[in-house]
């Protein structure tokens, strides 16, 4: 085992400090060290997108970063969105438009799509498609996910959210 390195990260506006081995993936750090199990792990090779989180506001694969590299950075995971009682607009749209079945891929989709809608919710079909391009879903066939994103975008435009 190599030396432990101290890491301080801000996750969902809360500061966490942990000592970890350099080889610990950020995805494992989030799930096992911080017990935030909403971030899913599918492939650990960057393909599936289930582990997508936001690093300093940009969607990235948490399986393709080491936890030590996140030292001093801001991380946002799916736990930062709504609660069971009060879903985030995007989560609510996924629910209403049947944007999920098993739900394994959902946190990744939410974290990939949200920065795009937050930058500008007036999105074209093409922008939506591009925002979904890096996430795989084995259940829905994608159409319902696209519908959900459209619905959320419309609500965000109407509600002046962004």
């Amino acid at each position: 085992m190599s030396e432990l390195i101290e890491v301080t990260v801000n996750v969902n506006s809360e500061e966490y400090r942990r000592s970890v081995e350099p080889r610990m993936l950020l995805s494992d750090f989030i799930r096992h060290e911080l017990s935030l199990s909403g971030t899913h792990v599918g492939c650990e090779q960057g393909v599936c997108g289930a582990c997508t989180i936001q690093l300093d506001g940009a969607a990235v694969r948490s399986c393709l970063m080491f936890a030590v590299q996140a030292d001093g950075h801001q991380i946002r995971t799916v736990e930062d969105l709504g609660t069971m009682d009060e879903l985030h607009t995007l989560q609510e749209a996924f629910w209403e438009a049947h944007g999920l079945q098993c739900g394994f891929c959902t946190p990744g989709f939410l974290m990939s799509i949200l920065p795009v809608l937050e930058e500008n919710p007036e999105v074209s079909e093409e922008t939506i498609q591009r925002a979904m391009e890096g996430n795989l879903c084995r259940c829905t066939g994608y159409q319902h996910i696209r519908d959900a994103v459209k619905q959320a975008a419309e609500k965000m435009v109407a509600g002046g959210e962004a």
């Binding site: 960057g46 969607a59 990235v60 393709l64 591009r130 391009e133 890096g134």
Partner: peptide, 12 residues
Amino acid sequence: MTKIATPQIRNR
């Protein structure tokens, strides 16, 4: 550029 990988991978 947009033909390289996915947006999340291009962010890194």
